[in-house]
Design a protein around this nucleic acid. Structure first.
Lengths: 339, 339
DNA sequence: ATACATAAGCGAAACGTTTTGCCTTATAAC
DNA sequence: GTTATAAGGCAAAACGTTTCGCTTATGTAT
């Protein structure tokens, strides 16, 4: 069915080596080039990547490793990364790993047998917080497979990573509230012990202490989406409740908005709110919600760039920490308070 | 670095062929089996897939082809499918294609050169509605690469596909409304000309005509999320406006809920609503929203199964149309009307 | 005993490339 | 006119497997 380099060689009366040279962009006579191109066209030749990979020991393939399946955020990031890798002539394979297992050897074997050139690791706190030597980061390092980590810094081992600048994002948003006269603030997050959330919390606190807001005027909540509504209700029933809140996550924001509407509190008239993590839908709300947005495309781009660099053997300034700036989108969910 | 089958052969004093037999589960002497296993352990041998692929002309690889990048729904489906394919010992590569191009030859070449065994095609109406012979489905067929299509039926060419039973899902939800005494209904969708949306609309209409609801009591809207709020507002200002609405999509539902809250209409007291497409967040709302949910995991499973069948040369009942039942989750967004 | 099937093992060829080292020819330098 | 230099081409080896055809040993039915 498919024709091979041999067929082209016969067809053109040239040697295998010459055809291979042509395919790899080496110098050959222009006339031969023309002949080869015609022949390729005529015979419908398509290079066989498996053969190329075997011989050259390079697969031009990167594996994205994710811990959980079905997560919207990471799932869509996969296709963004694919797009970027494609520009470098790399293809993407995705695979999931067992984050809770103490031994990721089987995942490593998979990568090794597939001969992937590099890995983009979407971490799970189970993996990053641990310096156990059978977990993915260690195994990858030992095997000499370059990888870059997304979203979270590894704690037991040095490694490149790229993440949103969560701290700055939260800091800016908080300042925005403070500048508009809010003096009692709340922050609502999911699991506040994760790297990402800790960073955001730090940003929030830094801004507050710059404005000398006393601790007692700050209200911090970390917990499940389902209980966020309850928390908000309690918070709002206090006599001196916050006038504004920074909400760390899409789902939480949605839940908060719904809760406020049930409580008959209007945004921003009765209460101000900023969401960390945007979605198209927030701009369609009434009022549209002011948000901090993570630049997913940029995260994908930078992760790709960094990985390419490492794959090409460039170890400059390892380990690199790339912080991607968030964007602050001012819409209409924050009220300006008179002093 | 990595050891090969040759090393094992030397180490065990057996021939390459025997080692290969062992690796492929053929019969060998139990004593040799033991020796080989020890040797593999000791030398840390890992089979080289690129070599296996080259020789056996089988890659155990499926490519998921998607049209757009960054789509949450499809992105997360990718990792679900990966999970299922993994059970069959297949790995997954993802790649995007140009839906608007008239010629997908380059995509085909990619698949051919990668030697993928099959494709899961996430379609774009640009591709399915067209019988142009340079578009993906035709090319795949011509090249003899088995594929199954998700979500949409191909119109120009027979092909397997698996999709949610959109029609039945909408039908059931609509009946639910009708059974609770609603006599004036609305349906709000995105692009109503897409296959998916048409199916849902049909389900809605079928239920309505069964209950002999006159056309004039039905209100149908298809359009962008951004203008849905406006539409709802107008609709609600009519004297005899619908008492309940079926909303075809997550974003639209969110937008509708917000709009209603701004209009000071309470769900379900003043207005009833069912969402097609669920999200965890809907259960956390107040009231929790009654929804029709697509069984993504099942879609992934069935697509995988069907593709495996085709890859193994089983063409029984081609082309197959698999309709995955939706689940109806009754929560509290629908009011029972007195007659 | 003879013939015959079955099981296990072996060496060598094959899969479709890239790479190596050598050879030829043309070009430039002196 | 000789010699150095470079460019392009070629045959063959290599990459790490699987598979083919053959051999030998073992058991089984005639």
């Amino acid at each position: 069915m498919g024709s091979t380099i041999k067929d082209i060689a016969k067809d053109t009366n040239l040697s295998l080596a010459t055809i291979s040279k042509y395919l790899n962009g080496k110098n050959i006579l222009p006339e031969n080039k023309k002949i080869i191109e015609e022949s390729i066209q005529r015979l419908g030749y398509i290079p066989n990547k498996t053969a190329q990979n075997l011989r050259s020991k390079k697969t031009n393939t990167v594996c994205i490793l994710l811990p959980i399946i079905g997560d919207y955020f990471w799932g869509s990031l996969c296709s963004i990364i694919e797009e970027h890798l494609r520009k470098y002539n790399y293809s993407t394979i995705i695979s999931s790993y067992n984050a809770s297992s103490g031994d990721n050897t089987s995942e490593l074997q998979f990568l090794l047998s597939k001969q992937v050139d590099g890995v983009i690791l979407i971490p799970d706190s189970n993996i990053t917080d641990d310096r156990a030597s059978f977990k993915l980061p260690f195994l990858l390092q030992k095997a000499g497979i370059p990888f870059v980590c997304l979203d979270q810094e590894l704690s037991g081992i040095p490694g490149d990573f790229v993440t949103s600048d969560n701290r700055a994002g939260a800091y800016n948003a908080t300042r925005y509230l403070l500048e508009r006269g809010h003096k009692r603030l709340g922050i609502i997050g999911g699991n506040l012990s994760s790297y990402t959330m800790k960073e955001r919390l730090t940003g929030f606190q830094n801004a507050c202490s710059e404005y000398q807001i006393p601790e007692r005027n700050l209200s911090v909540y970390g917990g499940a989406v389902s209980s966020c509504a309850e928390y908000l209700r309690i918070m709002m029933s206090l006599p001196e409740h916050p006038t504004a809140v920074l909400i760390l996550g899409y789902d939480l924001t949605l839940s908060a908005i719904m809760t406020l509407s049930v409580l008959n509190m209007q945004i921003p008239k009765d209460f101000s709110l900023i969401s960390f993590d945007d979605d198209e839908i927030f701009s369609a709300f009434n009022p549209p919600i002011t948000t901090v947005v993570q630049n997913m495309d940029e995260i994908g781009r930078q992760a790709t760039e960094l990985l390419m660099k490492r794959i090409n053997g460039n170890l400059d300034s390892f380990p690199e920490r790339k912080m991607i700036e968030t964007t602050f989108i001012i819409r209409k969910s924050v009220k300006v308070l008179a002093d």
